[in-house]
Nucleic acid binder design. Structure first.
Lengths: 254, 254
DNA sequence: CGCAATCGTGCATAAACGTGCAATCACGAA
DNA sequence: TTCGTGATTGCACGTTTATGCACGATTGCG
């Protein structure tokens, strides 16, 4: 693959990521863009000269760095963003994506690349907002009564609309997952909706923050065989993942 | 077979690719069109001169077209908030509200009082976000393909869902309004949607920022008789409002 | 304090750039 | 047809930009 990222384009991409994550690490960027750290440093210096970021040892921070968030919440958001980036890497060009409600999926929506002709189908207003207006996205909203606890529409009307669509990839929100029985959910109606979007999709990606791997929930939603990809944190115990691999699930990590 | 691509045609093709991918690489284009990079550079220079792209080292990037959606939210924000407060005062307890997409209506959603048992029915993700999770609100989302220019779902699927609901109050987005013929809109599908929600509501409130009173639009949407309340700025010329009052419209001001 | 990572600077090289110029070609006037 | 004109193109040349590496200084951390 001829790696043709234009210099200015790279700076723009760095800036985008800066705005999304609040910080960037020079070494990571160098590896990601396949250029030397010198070039990255020059990019960051340029951006800093324009007042767009604050240069710090090892990388850069967003210039308008808001009040430091609660550390727990901050780390958690950081983890979700890194999982979201991995999940976004599973998406191809011109694909149709079902994206369920949930904070991790909102991070996924933000991490999706522009100019790829993607169609995002979602029941969650915040997921829609995350891609609306960005170039290269079509957005289809699934209507219905919105459950304030989950932040997305569920119910029979929503399910019916979902059934009228066929997607390439599906990202159901994960309440709990285990390698024997698969996906679990807390709510009856939520379960029915997730089943509908999984059924209507070619492949299914489960993004599981560490707690989801050991959590348990009330309603069985999908067998493990319905899960194509699993995205988990980098420091996940390898022994926990073996049964997933044996069940034919492709395991992805940052 | 010598491919005969006219210079002008080539520029159009470059522009198409630019809009699709967000960037073009000069060397790639030269190879693709079988011309020297010099010609490609000249093309890109021309396009940049027309403001259609941003020339950068190695190629060109799509001119950063800021989403006018964000912009509309920020201009006249104070005025919109004050009009929204007045409009929110027209809402009673336990009512069902149709709220159309639009920056003024987003301000309305934010201004709606909590703990009143209100049900908000909307085609706009940002309106849904504005009330979602606040106590005393039910939210019903109208699905369909979301038009990025207006920030809400429109189209036949959306209209059909709207027709299944009966509301007390309706807040259509106002593109233009006049006291003889009533409400006007720019887009065909938008018109159909607004007609549907007005039809399905007991009363209709038009919130008109000053520019809307003198603007004109292409599609007639609703006769003046369908408008129950008009909300306008405090400094509006009284003479402009008389014909609305004579047409039976209740005029409200901050 | 010591060490490793990171940083800034200078330099060489390669790629891309702008400009000027000549060749080519379509097209209309003579 | 013949000529002239303007548009378009490719090439040569000097300039600018981007990149990676070397080297020494600085920073963060134990």
């Amino acid at each position: 693959m001829p790696d043709t990222t234009l210099p200015r384009e790279r700076q723009q991409l760095i800036l985008d990521r800066l705005r999304r994550d609040g910080k960037v690490v020079a070494a990571d960027l160098a590896q990601e863009f396949r250029v030397s750290e010198d070039s990255i440093r020059r990019d960051l210096r340029d951006l800093a000269a324009q007042g767009l970021c604050r240069r710090v040892y090892g990388g850069a921070l967003l210039a308008a760095q808001v009040a430091p968030l609660d550390e727990r919440h901050h780390e958690r958001a950081e983890l979700k963003r890194s999982l979201a980036r991995v999940a976004a890497g599973l998406v191809g060009e011109e694909q149709i994506l079902f994206i369920d409600a949930g904070s991790t999926n909102t991070a996924l929506a933000r991490a999706l690349p522009e100019h790829r002709g993607l169609t995002v189908v979602t029941n969650a207003p915040d997921v829609a907002m995350a891609v609306l207006g960005r170039p290269g996205f079509d957005v289809i909203l699934l209507g219905g009564r919105v459950d304030p606890r989950i932040g997305g529409a569920i119910g029979s009307r929503t399910v019916r609309q979902a059934q009228d669509i066929r997607a390439d990839l599906c990202f159901p929100g994960v309440c709990a997952i285990d390698p024997e029985r698969g996906l679990w959910t807390f709510d009856e109606e939520e379960t029915v909706f997730k089943q509908a979007i999984i059924e209507a999709s070619g492949e299914t990606v489960a993004i599981a923050t560490p707690d989801k791997l050991v959590a348990s929930a009330t309603h069985h939603t999908a067998p493990i065989g319905a899960i194509t990809h699993l995205v988990v944190a980098a420091d996940t115990d390898g022994a926990m993942l073996t049964p997933y691999r044996e069940a034919g699930v492709s395991v992805n990590m940052p």
